[in-house]
Design a protein around this nucleic acid. Structure first.
Lengths: 342, 342
DNA sequence: CTGAAAGCGCTAACAG
DNA sequence: CTGTTAGCGCTTTCAG
């Protein structure tokens, strides 16, 4: 077992003063003489005292912990958002408990339960793709526990959130394809109940209409965000009598899977099919051809989520704020018609 | 602010008994009558009571928290190890505080300090690539705080660890290359002080010797694990009078970067240069050609790290155990000579 | 200027 | 079988 850490008591005894004197000295209470304060601080430093957070937590009923629930850990998107959250949290002296839901509603609920037991002060959450029932989140808000959503959100009138401008981004991709001579533009969406699926689809439809391209329901595919299901959606598209000449997906993972299938069929990207992704994963530049993708301000998204969280902690009464962040389309090889090499 | 959660006191008052009776009833103490116990449990359930972890922590001087420090969050490798750690931790009622060091010694130290302040009971760590001075870890062991390393380790005689069989794996890759007609085999290593750099290099040398290939120091390159520095190392290899016809790197990220450079130079993988990676990232199958790579039992690595941790918590006296896990070479397109397509 | 005492939620030893 | 008390480390009255 670890040695017991020094407590106020130890310092008090060593200095021959009372515990409360030490406590006061450490926090520059005016009642304590300057010399004594200095002496106390010096010794505390020497013994490298730090207040026991459990004692403090017990006293103030705050754990200084935030529960963060993300669908996945492995993407740049989430790990970068977490980075942003942590940066802001650290400034405020908060810790972050990250629990992946692995896209499962079951896991999501279980994580919430566990984090509640650990007495996190509140939650920052990105919905699992399975989540279409929101009662567990309603319970949280009803208990007046701070809750903020990012990216995949729900209960908009009750819960603050940060999202990307999915609509405009999807519209932009669609137009970009059109400007590069695509006319049969397909979109591989995710589950309908997710806001990001829906908004991106709306943007896609708007983009088609902007370019006076008719909407062909066959070009609107769907998957459950897993590579396997994305591959199947791609195959359905490629099997159409008139297969699309451009595809974009709800995120990069989906498009990576699509790229693999397209290649398997002996088709060329971008010559036969142009591709574009969403969320600009690191690997977009590793694949060949490099993937055109919508870049999200991920770190900023995390920072803002944390800031909204602390607004909430400060005052549960304010109306929920929703922040929408601008994205940027990064154009790479996968969506630009080029002359055949050599 | 969140409503105060129910405490033993609340339940005791509602039932008209004392706090200790409730406490005992909840834990099936034989002194309490069966009916009363049942009654207590029923009410506790109804109000969904759960013990305040801070009160418990204060009392028992344990936080049930493990500090996990990883160089990065974004790779499958680390996120999968974390998954393994969390699974075992959850079973024991422990929480995991994950703090990325972002490969920086500075950050690593800072994380330790913060986690100590949060009173984690111990640490599970993968060294940052910058870490060649280990005094901060020596301090931890001297304070008798449980510490376990995984993958990148140090202080082997004092600290338990889980690692992969880097030596055999690197040797295996080298031989695999040779069996596929490579004779100029290069290795892009990482910082010298990392055990994984060193062991893989030794395995590489052994592999060369196994195949009766002479060791050419020019084919032993080095990088700092960043894609940029890996790219530079690759360029140095390609610029040699007799450039290598096979390259493997200390991890997949390095090899992805190498692949990009090779392609930029108009060379073909595997025809001109065969490639193989280490740690089998998800994206190994996304790139084209698909990357041959050494698969690590990552989740198991996390589980074992956690198990070693709990052995340590149980009894600090046992000699440090070191576990080495077997890896497996997954052969894909990037390292197999094929007839030109068509 | 400083100390003593209460209390945050809980368990365990000690009394009934 | 059940209640009382002390104490984990800390801050905050309340008394000197």
């Amino acid at each position: 077992m670890a040695k017991r850490r020094v407590s106020l008591k130890d310092i008090a005894k060593e200095l021959g003063v009372s515990i409360s004197t030490v406590s006061r000295g450490l926090r520059d209470h005016p009642d304590i003489s300057n010399e004594l304060t200095a002496e106390i601080k010096a010794l505390a430093d020497l013994r490298n005292y730090s207040p026991n957070p459990m004692a403090m937590g017990l006293l103030q009923q705050r754990t200084k912990m935030i529960g963060v629930i993300v669908p996945d850990l492995v993407t740049h998107f989430f790990s970068s958002v977490i980075l942003g959250i942590e940066a802001v949290a650290k400034e405020k002296g908060y810790f972050v408990l990250v629990s992946p839901s692995y896209e499962s509603l079951e896991k999501e609920k279980e994580n919430i339960k566990n984090l509640m037991k650990a007495r996190v002060e509140g939650f920052i959450v990105c919905l699992s793709q399975e989540t279409s029932d929101y009662s567990h989140f309603e319970q949280i808000t009803e208990s007046e526990i701070p809750l903020v959503f990012f990216d995949r959100v729900c209960l908009k009138d009750k819960v603050p959130s940060v999202v990307a401008d999915s609509f405009e981004a999807a519209r932009g991709i669609t137009r970009h394809f059109y400007e590069n001579q695509a006319t049969r533009i397909a979109y591989i969406s995710g589950p309908d109940h997710l806001n990001i699926s829906d908004e991106r689809r709306q943007g896609y439809l708007q983009g088609l209409s902007d370019c006076s391209l008719g909407y062909n329901p066959e070009y609107l595919e769907q998957c459950n965000l897993s590579p396997g299901s994305a591959a199947e959606a791609t195959l359905r598209l490629l099997a159409l009598p008139k297969p699309p000449d451009a595809i974009f997906g709800i995120n990069d993972t989906v498009v990576f899977a699509a790229m693999k299938e397209i290649r398997k069929r002996g088709l060329n990207v971008p010559k036969d099919v142009m591709l574009a992704g969403f969320t600009d994963e690191f690997h977009a530049t590793v694949v060949h051809p490099m993937l055109t993708s919508v870049m999200h301000p991920t770190r900023e998204m995390g920072e803002i989520a944390a800031m909204l969280f602390f607004e909430l902690i400060g005052n549960m009464e304010t109306a929920p704020r929703s922040v929408e962040l601008k994205t940027e389309l990064v154009i790479r090889e996968s969506s630009v018609r080029v002359e055949e090499k050599k």
